Computed example of a mutant assay.
Amino acid sequence: MIVGLIGTIEKKEPTFLHINVNGVIYEVFISINCSSEIKDKNVKLHISHIVREESESLYGFIDINEKKMFDRLLKINGVGPKVAIAICSTFKPNTFAKIVNEKNVSMLKKVPGIGPKSAQRILVELGEFSLEEGALSSSHIEAQMALESLGFKKDQIQKVLQKCESTDTASLVKEALKKIQKI
């Protein structure tokens, strides 16, 4: 079972990568959100290895929370890897957690291939969805350190960063500062 890959990107498309790992090139399917976070040729991905009777597929994630979201979705009856990756492409883990916890069917219906019945079933079967506290992206960690250096309290920073949608460090800091001012 493959659980992670570290290598060099040979080919990058919005929905998949070809990653060279010591001379072996793997095709790894990714979400559009994950694709937008990849800026460098060298990459480290968390992998969900799906083995089916007729094929084996690798799904890669930079953010461990996105992988958790994908794996959790696969456990739902009627949700396969294509639908799960479509959900990951449409929503970031923070946004998805809000949608699930608020039981927001109309937002989930925005995902291509999900109708009202599927959206309702997904929300019922998931119950609640929470993010791993310790598994923040490197951008979140850097933003947290930057805000701490400005004198903000750690618990206040964590609450604000969970509400932020940005992915890069600079945007996260700006967005967090705006939200902290409103508190």
Rank of each mutant, 00 (worst) to 15 (best):
N42K: 13
G23V: 09
E125Y: 02
G4I: 02
V79N: 06
L123P: 01
S36T: 07
P14W: 04
Q144P: 03
R52F: 10
A97V: 10
I157W: 05
K67Q: 14
K182H: 09
G7Q: 03
K117L: 13
N20A: 09
L73A: 01
V51M: 09
V105Y: 10
K98E: 06
F91E: 09
I47P: 00
H46E: 08
K178F: 03
I62W: 02
K174G: 06
L177M: 14
A97S: 15
R121K: 15
K41C: 10
P81F: 09
S118K: 15
E37Y: 03
T8D: 12
R52N: 13
I157Q: 01
I76C: 10
Y26K: 04
R72T: 14
I9H: 04
N20Q: 10
M107C: 12
L126Y: 00
L161S: 07
C88D: 12
T8Q: 06
V21I: 07
S35E: 11
L108N: 04
T95C: 03
A135D: 15
G134R: 08
E165G: 09
N77I: 01
K179D: 01
K68E: 13
E165D: 15
S139R: 00
N65F: 12
P112L: 15
Q158C: 01
Q144E: 14
E142Q: 11
A119F: 13
F96H: 11
G151F: 06
K109H: 04
E142W: 03
L45I: 08
A170W: 00
L123D: 07
H140V: 06
E165M: 08
I64N: 06
E66P: 09
I19L: 14
I47W: 12
I32K: 04
L150I: 09
N22H: 14
F91C: 12
L123N: 05
P116W: 00
L123S: 06
A86G: 11
G7D: 07
N65H: 13
Q156C: 05
D40V: 02
G4M: 11
F129R: 01
E165A: 14
V124E: 04
V28H: 05
C164I: 00
E132W: 02
E10T: 00
K11M: 10
Q120M: 03
Q181T: 02
H46N: 13
S138Y: 11
K110Q: 08
E132Q: 00
E56K: 01
Q181R: 01
L17T: 02
L5G: 02
S35L: 03
I9A: 11
I87A: 15
V124T: 14
E142R: 10
K178R: 05
E53I: 01
K117V: 14
E132S: 14
A146K: 00
D63N: 15
V24F: 12
K182D: 08
E27L: 05
E37M: 13
S166G: 04
K82T: 12
V28C: 08
K154G: 00
L74N: 05
R121F: 03
M69I: 11
I157T: 10
S130R: 05
M1G: 05
T169G: 06
N104H: 10
V43E: 11
T15P: 07
I30D: 10
E175D: 11
L45Q: 06
S48F: 07
F96R: 08
L150G: 05
G7N: 04
T95K: 14
A119G: 14
V51T: 05
K103G: 11
